[in-house]
Design a protein around this nucleic acid. Sequence first.
DNA 1: CCGCATCCGTAACGATACTG
DNA 2: CAGTATCGTTACGGATGCGG
Lengths: 142, 142
Amino acid sequence: MPRLSEGNHLAVANPLPKDAASELDPSRCPVRDVLDHIGNKWTALILLTLQAQAQRFSELHRAIPDISKRMLTQSLRELERDGLIERRVYPTKPPSVEYRLSSLGESIMVPLLGLVEWAERHHADIRQARVYFDGARDSEPA
Amino acid sequence: MPRLSEGNHLAVANPLPKDAASELDPSRCPVRDVLDHIGNKWTALILLTLQAQAQRFSELHRAIPDISKRMLTQSLRELERDGLIERRVYPTKPPSVEYRLSSLGESIMVPLLGLVEWAERHHADIRQARVYFDGARDSEPA
DNA sequence: CCGCATCCGTAACGATACTG
DNA sequence: CAGTATCGTTACGGATGCGG
């Protein structure tokens, strides 16, 4: 099995020239960058929702009820900024805005759906492991 | 393209029996459950690191320098709890502990590496989209 | 060496109210 | 309808120090 770009995502061991970065630059690590985003609790859900078809703001809101407007807006902005979705404004009255996956956004669906599929397939295993772990925790000290 | 289990990950539209859950149960949604975990900023990195080979606590710490011991411990516990990694204690003196992927953990590497590969392949696109977006933002209001 | 506990700053997030 | 602004809370996460 290939190991990909050997230790690239691990924080650079070489301590950086001098004082260049008081903090190591995470934007230089594709893995962290992308993973942080899809882990942003909502972004993945939004992408998944948009994968079915383009949606308007309130449709998205209805599809994901437990997100606040604030977070929805913010997440959409991020996705748009990253070029994963496109935002189209129709100057109707009242105005309507439609969000859709860009081609880049579509391309991430492939690995993302892979993860989704894994999640659905192995969720039972995880839940089982959890109850075992939690059970063993307080029945062990016999 | 298959849409998987139609709208499962979206918060259940059916408003739950009565008062059952004041909050909708995210643990019943595999997608959210898994995505939240791998998005936990460190878990994915740890899995990626362990994929190469089993590692001891301090080896992991060296491999991912910018994680605190606290977070490393915590993340490892979570992963162990979910059955993705195994923890082996060697009663040497001083004691040494080794972490390795479980078979379940190995199985998640496939989709995870898919995402990693996507990230590496498209990171340039994302960065470019960002500068474009940010640039357009404050040059637009002409 | 491994890992837990405490303290504390920060940001993420939600709720609400208001604008075009 | 599609946001923005403000506020308050919560939790994440880092630093440090102790114990096995």
